[in-house]
Design a protein around this nucleic acid. Structure first.
Lengths: 396, 396
DNA sequence: CTACTTTTTCCACTCACAGGACAAAGGCGC
DNA sequence: GCGCCTTTGTCCTGTGAGTGGAAAAAGTAG
């Protein structure tokens, strides 16, 4: 179970590895078309990569009319682990070097139990995936946590919803436990990287990803790179004031967006509406399950329940108002909406769009798509795999 | 009056030119300490730069104990023109290659008269500076305009306060008239570059510059580079909603920040207060001048006028609220306040700070200075010179 | 089988660059 | 003033990256 520890020796090799990751198997000639290197130089670098076993030869490429060429591909035995820790559940997935998901487990969990308990669970999930024959070991792992991270060290800093994680050396600890390189980032940033790699944001360089889950966060991509801010807390839009003198928020202020719309706020509002008998649909669901969540509201709305629709619409308006401000400020080329509440679907999206298109200036909104994420719950783990592969596929 | 048309031939030369621009004259040895090149290579590149006359030898350097060395400096005959077009006035300045201002003229002007009239005035101002012996000609010019710009082409796009400029080929036209390379950018971006080059933001990589003049705009610097957004309208924060259902704004919406606080809004509020006899101080000033501006409010506030102070405080609160949102989102390392209202000074700053520190989370505000710009009205022209020098001091 | 492509390998040549040797020019202690 | 040390500037050669042409290898189309 020895793993590949080799790293690209120079920028050319790193470039080639990324091309193979993003474009799949390629012949030497096809690679040559993309990298602006002489054939000889390219051949040398490919040979060196073959020596390190980071890439392997893999059959014949499709003929383009002349001599048939051999394909080069990333070593099919390479395995990355993607971990996406949410507030109430955790996703663990195994990918190959092309970041295709080979296996994916989701389990409920509570971050507030602290890093030790959570990582115990994560490690057992990883072991389960390994046991099922998907991987003999991992060449790298990306971890997403629901809070700000000091990125270079991979350490959460002052995370509001996960006390007990503050200062815990996630990167180092997991690197020990897994025996492979580890990178840690905010879950929203990973979602952005996921949508950038395999989702709706493949061709855009500057975009925002708004994740509405238990809380609300925003991933910022500038020039194709995730922007994390000075202290790693960029994108923390949940506590932007959406309603002057609005509801009290856990952060101590009033009217925070997150207090008015988020998975948690929505669940509370729905329960309240059900208890007050404003919505028969929600009331019956509350009775059936004992608790209500975003999914229940989505179902009620789909059934035409007026109260549920109104909740979604109002939340969408609030969110849209905040996003409108961000659009004016940031002038992105795309806004992606994702997270647990994606199930609310078009009603939510329509409300957000209405606000943004109404409030921001035409120059910024003129050609601005606002869309739902394409990858759903896999965005995070794909982003995590992408994170560690970016790290490993860069010059040592 | 032949000008230097040479450009650095490679990245090393560009690097050296920028070092000399930012650090002033240096000996070969001192340059060597900063660039990580072998002495031989460095000597070759310096010699080539000397050949092109972009740099010149300039006397002996201070002794560091051994053989005394000759200083190298940027050609002292190089001249850049910095032009900062505001809504109601225009600044034109001449700098040397080290971006030191050699001469500076400010004149009132109205952008709404259109590009042809404005540039006529700008050209005559430039001619005046040249006639005074400060320059024989210009090696490059940077132009700032108060609206969004399609940066690569140097063309204003859909600028709200300067109709008639939409699509006018500023860069090309001025390049013809001046006979030198020209770059065009938003005035706020130039202010940010100015403060970055010679002001408070010298050591920060990610920061915001909020310019409160006739309107309100924001310069965004990410990783030391100005961020302009997908369509060049990034930083357009004047039309973010600050007051739900607030005052009507020229843009068609209600409650825009700019409608509630800006040079124009402040002048209107002050005039109103004076006419309603709420403030004797402002009333007497109105009577004396026939009109009121930010400077009058500043003076009244300095004299202890309660109404003026209240206007400033309320404007600062509104601005601070919007900035608080931007700080949560962007997590900058510094916020600079500048523009015409800087004269309102500490009262304004205190109001803004209060709001930001109250509303944004500690992780983002913990070590976040919010300060006034250091350069005042010269920030724009220095930024303009910096813009064109960055362009010229990059590999051809 | 022939003519033409495309792919791959081989090889000679260029060029950027590093770094050592050495010369030039100064400071400093004696 | 004199030797010794330090710093600066110049020269020169070796090395390794990279280019591009030629030719070989392995196909396809007619």
């Amino acid at each position: 179970m020895r793993r590949m520890t080799a790293r690209p020796a120079n920028a050319h090799q790193a470039r080639l590895l990324r091309l193979l990751r993003d474009g799949g198997p390629n012949s030497r000639a096809q690679l040559g078309d993309q990298v602006d290197l002489s054939r000889s130089k390219l051949a040398v670098e490919v040979d060196r990569l073959l020596e390190t076993e980071l890439v392997v030869a893999d059959g014949l490429a499709a003929s383009r009319g002349g001599r048939r060429s051999h394909n080069i591909r990333l070593n099919p035995h390479l395995r990355f682990l993607g971990v996406d820790i949410g507030a109430t559940s955790v996703d663990v997935a195994v990918t190959n070097a092309e970041l295709e998901i080979l296996g994916h487990i989701n389990q409920p969990m509570d971050v507030r139990e602290g890093p030790v308990a959570v990582f115990e669970q994560v490690l057992s999930m990883a072991a389960k995936l390994r046991a099922s024959g998907l991987a003999e070991g991992f060449d790298g792992a990306g971890i997403g946590v629901p809070g700000p991270v000091r990125f270079p060290e991979g350490i959460p800093v002052a995370p509001p919803i996960m006390p007990g994680w503050d200062g815990f050396p996630v990167r180092e600890a997991l690197s020990q436990d897994l025996g492979c390189p580890v990178m840690v980032d905010n879950d929203v940033n990973l979602m952005a990287m996921g949508e950038q790699h395999a989702g709706v944001a493949r061709t855009v360089h500057d975009f925002l990803v708004v994740k509405i889950g238990t809380g609300i966060g925003c991933g910022i991509v500038v020039g194709g790179e995730v922007y994390r801010g000075t202290t790693g807390s960029a994108g923390d839009i949940g506590h932007i004031q959406a309603v002057p003198d609005g509801r009290p928020c856990a952060c101590g202020n009033r009217g925070c967006l997150e207090a008015h719309f988020s998975g948690a706020a929505l669940a509370r509002d729905a329960t309240e509406a059900a208890e007050q008998r404003l919505s028969p649909e929600l009331a019956s669901r509350l009775e059936a399950n004992g608790t209500l969540g975003a999914a229940d509201v989505a179902a009620a709305a789909a059934a035409g329940d007026a109260t549920a629709l109104e909740l979604i619409r109002e939340g969408g308006n609030r969110t849209g108002q905040v996003i409108a401000g961000l659009v004016s400020f940031f002038n992105p080329g795309l806004v992606v909406i994702g997270g647990g509440v994606t199930g609310l679907g078009h009603t939510l999206l329509a409300a957000i769009r209405t606000q943004v298109y109404r409030q921001s200036l035409p120059l910024a909104t003129g050609n601005l798509p606002i869309v739902l994420g394409e990858l759903g719950p896999t965005a995070g783990v794909i982003g995590a795999a992408r994170l560690i592969s970016d790290h490993l596929f860069s010059p040592a």
